[in-house]
Each structure stands twice: as C-alpha cells, then as structure tokens.
Amino acid sequence: MIKTVVIERKPLSLSERTYLPQIASGLKTTLSNLFKKKVTLQYPEQRPSIPRGYRGVPTLVKDPNGREKCVSCQLCEFVCPSKAIRITPGDIPEDDEEQSHVEKAPKEFEIDMLRCIYCGYCEEVCPEEAIFLQEDYSLSGYSREELVNDKEKLYEMGGTLPDKHFKWDKKKTEEEQGNAH
C-alpha cells in the first residue's frame, strides 16, 4: 500500500537564520582547499596520459606489409554524423602485381577536421579495420584548407598497426595455391 508521507521541513533555528555558522563553515572549507595539492597540468610542457580507447584524430592505417587497408567501401562516409568524411573511390588496375586482388582503393580520402566530432563511428563501422582514432588530440592550422586531412596526411598520421586477420593476404595465398580454376 503506497502512502504519501509529507515530510515537514524543519524551521531554521535562529543561528541558521543569520547564515553566520554556514558562512563560517564555508570559509573553513575554502581555506582548507587553499593549502591542498593543486591539480593543474602545465599543459604544453606536461602532457596528459592518454587512456586506452581514447578517441583522438581519425587516421588511416596500413597493415604490417605496408598495404593500404582502406578499400573505399564508404561506410565511414555514410555513418559519419557530421559528414566530415569524403571519399572518391577508385580501382586498383589489374596489372598491379601486389594488390590487384583487392580491386578497390580510395582515390581520394578527405576528413574535414573542422567538421569531425571525434565520435569514433567511422572506426566502429570500418569492415577492414583501416580507420582508427589514435592518440593525437591537438590539431591546429591557419586556414580551413589546412584542416582538411587528405589521404597522404591520413596515412602519415596513421602509420602501421598490427593486423589480426590479413584477410586480403590470405585471399592472395588462396589464389596462388588454392582451388584455382
């Protein structure tokens, strides 16, 4: 059985009504804070430690064999809530010995860092594990153009990350040794 209980607010005592005891205790608190250790980080000299899973600047990575992993499926472009990503797809020509089995790669890949909101959806959606939000967080420039990262810059920032699957390398091996027709 639910019962409504009205709790009466206690009337303030005389000393409470003068506010003075409360003011005094407030002053005590602030005074004790005065001598506590400061938490400020002296930013440009000291850097915060970046936790695992931090979402910094989005970058494109290559696999340990130096192959570009992005195949321009454009899912990141689709999922990007702020429409910061723009991809022009292109194909890998058939005579490319190394990578023709992948068939597709981005011709251009641009991330507009003025639009990016660092949500990490692109990393989450990427089926090839080619886009990662890495540890960079400080990004500045003098013009709008400068802050649009193109493919070259994205790969430069991204570097190489370990790969668990080597999906396309396996495919190539299959092609060379497998049930070829």
Binding site: E94, H101, E103, E174, E175, G178, N179, H181
Partner: peptide, 20 residues
C-alpha cells in the same frame, strides 16, 4: 577451409563485368 578461387574480372561484354 580455403574458399574457392575464381576469376574476378571477366569481361562478358562491352558493358558487363563478371566476378565469378
């Protein structure tokens, strides 16, 4: 197991490409 491998870019005609 290994998947079957077949030709990926067969040109069936001037406008159609087949991925077997």
């Amino acid at each position: 197991e290994r998947k079957n491998v077949k030709p990926k870019r067969t040109r069936l005609g001037p406008r159609v490409t087949l991925d077997d």
